[in-house]
């Protein structure tokens, strides 16, 4: 009798432990612990045994009943907490990932710049890539046959059509079409007929800024550029304003930022100078105002221009400008 109980106990334990669902568990319970189960019959037959046997079998029955009851509860908990998942799932297998797209590094850089300037109250203006001589040069105080034109290696089409060499003609187009106050940025692709190398592309990206109103001052130009640089590179950035020359601004200034790579100690990125040229700027030349029909006695303004590629290179450590137009996915993925 005791042997049979031990055997029943073993079977019941195995069945309870291996039950794979709540339903299966219930079947196991009915089979081993239900009213019609062999175990129940044994307990009911206890009274027919002699007292000695009744005592020892009775103890065994009680122990087994408690053990199986506890095991039943445990199994129930286990199955309920497991929810409806199928058995045998390996959660360490990779999930089915969809493809993830990505914006071009220059787009992301530009978006950063745009959001800073929008925060400073600038709106976006755009212009054509195929420009004319007037907007690209003459109106910007860069006359034909003047050595100042040597600063721009130009792609010519025919007649006076050319590919814009900078985003500055957008200044002219905006001023021609509107009256001050004007506060714009003009981003976009520009073209230079230059031999390409790691730091020069023949197609690259600029961002131009222009603010014209009554009483705009050089100090404000500095204020805006310093604010911009701090938002872009952090509050610790160090700038240097020095003399510069652009035919369409007077006074003109070149703005350097202390090399972020070497913190001004001098390295290959900054050619050992500790400074990197990042921006050109100045107060709009009165001759430019005259060309677009603004009264230079009434309005003043500032303009600035920067290279989007250069800023992206500086921020990411990319060392070859040509990578931007090569579109190697291995590059696009990392930058």
């Amino acid at each position: 009798m005791l042997d049979r109980l031990t055997e029943l106990g073993r079977e019941a334990k195995a069945a309870l432990q291996s039950a794979a669902s709540v339903v299966e568990l219930e079947n196991v319970r009915v089979k081993y612990l239900g009213r019609k189960s062999e175990f129940n019959q044994v307990s009911r037959g206890l009274k027919d045994l002699d007292p000695d046997e009744r005592r020892s079998v009775g103890r065994a029955v009680n122990e087994l009943k408690n053990a199986l009851g506890a095991l039943l509860e445990q199994s129930k908990e286990r199955l309920e907490s497991a929810g409806d998942e199928p058995v045998g799932l390996d959660p360490t297998l990779p999930g089915r990932r969809p493809w993830v797209g990505r914006k071009h590094p220059l787009t992301r850089t530009y978006e950063r710049l745009e959001s800073i300037f929008r925060g400073l109250g600038f709106e976006v203006a755009l212009g054509p890539h195929v420009e004319d001589d007037f907007h690209n040069f003459d109106a910007l105080n860069i006359p034909a046959d003047h050595p100042a034109r040597d600063g721009w290696d130009t792609f010519y089409i025919d007649g006076d059509a050319l590919l814009r060499t900078h985003t500055s003609p957008v200044q002219i187009r905006v001023m021609e079409s509107r009256k001050p106050p004007i506060r714009i940025i003009a981003p976009g692709r520009v073209y230079r007929n230059e031999t390409q190398d790691a730091s020069h592309g023949s197609e690259f990206y600029q961002l131009e800024g222009l603010y014209v109103d009554r009483g705009v001052r050089f100090g404000e130009l500095k204020g805006v550029l310093i604010r911009f640089m701090k938002e872009l590179f952090g509050e610790d950035v160090t700038l240097r304003f020095r003399a510069g020359f652009f035919p369409f601004t007077e006074p003109s200034t070149e703005v350097d930022v202390e090399c972020l790579i070497c913190q001004g100690a001098g390295c290959s990125v900054c050619s050992g100078t500790g400074w990197v040229e990042l921006l050109g700027a100045g107060m709009v030349d009165p001759r430019v105002f005259e060309t677009v029909g603004y009264d230079p006695g009434e309005f003043t303004g500032y303009a600035f221009g920067l290279g989007v590629d250069r800023i992206c290179m500086m921020m990411t450590g990319t060392d070859d400008i040509r990578l931007f137009l090569e579109n190697d996915l291995r590059f696009l993925r990392q930058i």
Binding site: G121, R217, G219, E220, K222, R242, E250, P251, M283
Partner: peptide, 29 residues
């Protein structure tokens, strides 16, 4: 022109010396 002379004054005075101002007059866009 006059603006050219102002640049000469700024060169002598120092670009760094001019105090930056943070303007903000709002503008309709």
């Amino acid at each position: 022109i006059e603006a050219d002379l102002i640049e000469e004054v700024l060169r002598a005075h120092g670009y760094e010396s001019v105090p930056p101002e943070v303007p903000f007059r709002s503008l309709e866009t």
